[in-house]
């Protein structure tokens, strides 16, 4: 069994999915089901005090079946992220956090300096920290040294669907990472997820690519298969790239020669 371990938890699925941007809760539920994911990320937000009629996200998610991973999406400082992580821990059932400290509204790129500060602070408080980071090998190494339970470099900007922009950086990160490497953000379609896994990522995290697809449920299944295919290809070991052809059929015994 090809399992996947983060901190003290073992998972079978290497696909982690989000809960944002779905057209309806029922589509989200079906997409989660089709994705085969075991870990689902959720955001922490103020309760709407004036309108209590809205249903809660937790009305739709079977927490006995899925492991909820609160995120700190939308936080722009280490302090905000730490506060949000603490709130997420109390609202949920675990001390895990998908740590995001955003540096810029347009790119949603991480503020790596603040991210490192928040990672150190939360590790000290006993959190299992999964930081969303740039695809910078040095930053990833520092996060690992700071006690991150996994490193989650972006493939491309959040929600951009551009696919993996810096394949070589991911290769370098893969080479030295001792904690799980999860490509987080930037996936647009199934082949992007496969590529991440072929490069040796331990998992892929995505939201928009599924939630905003024309058919989110079908895309969720495509992503499940793509992650599995990429993982198998990685384990199988690909052939080297060559400049010229190398015939697959025997060159002897051809008719008419």
């Amino acid at each position: 069994m090809d399992t996947f371990k983060i901190a003290d938890k073992t998972f079978t699925s290497r696909l982690i999915v989000g809960t944002g941007k779905y057209s309806s809760p029922s589509v989200m539920v079906k997409a989660h089901e089709a994705s085969g994911a075991e870990i689902i990320t959720v955001a922490v937000r103020r309760v709407n005090i004036s309108d209590r009629t809205k249903e809660s996200l937790l009305d739709f998610i079977d927490t006995a079946k899925y492991f909820l991973l609160p995120n700190t999406a939308g936080c722009y400082t280490a302090d905000e992220a730490v506060r949000t992580a603490r709130l997420g821990r109390e609202a949920g059932l675990s001390n895990w956090v998908k740590l995001e400290v955003i540096g810029d509204e347009k790119t949603l790129f991480p503020d790596n300096e603040a991210l490192l500060d928040a990672t150190r602070a939360l590790v000290r408080e006993g959190f299992v920290v999964l930081p969303y980071t740039s695809d910078d090998p040095i930053v990833c190494r520092k996060l690992e040294d700071a006690g991150a339970a996994a490193i989650m470099p972006l493939g491309a900007p959040i929600g951009s669907g551009l696919g993996i922009q810096n394949v070589n950086n991911l290769r370098i990160i893969r080479e030295f990472a001792r904690v799980p490497l999860i490509v987080d953000a930037g996936v647009g379609t199934a082949s992007d997820a496969s590529l991440a896994m072929e490069l040796g990522a331990d998992g892929v995290l995505m939201n928009t690519a599924i939630a905003c697809a024309q058919d989110p449920v079908a895309m969720a299944e495509a992503m499940k298969l793509a992650v599995r295919a990429g993982r198998l290809a990685h384990l199988a070991g690909r052939i080297p790239r060559k400049m010229y052809a190398n015939a697959s059929s025997p060159v002897e015994g051809l008719v008419g020669r």
């Binding site: 989000g18 809960t19 959720v42 937000r45 996200l57 999406a73 400082t77 302090d79």
Partner: peptide, 18 residues
């Protein structure tokens, strides 16, 4: 007092006021 819960997420431009 801040009262929060889980919502679909999500990279909205939201900030906890400091």
């Amino acid at each position: 007092v801040e009262i929060v819960n889980f919502v679909g997420g999500g990279e909205e431009n939201f900030k906890l006021r400091t």
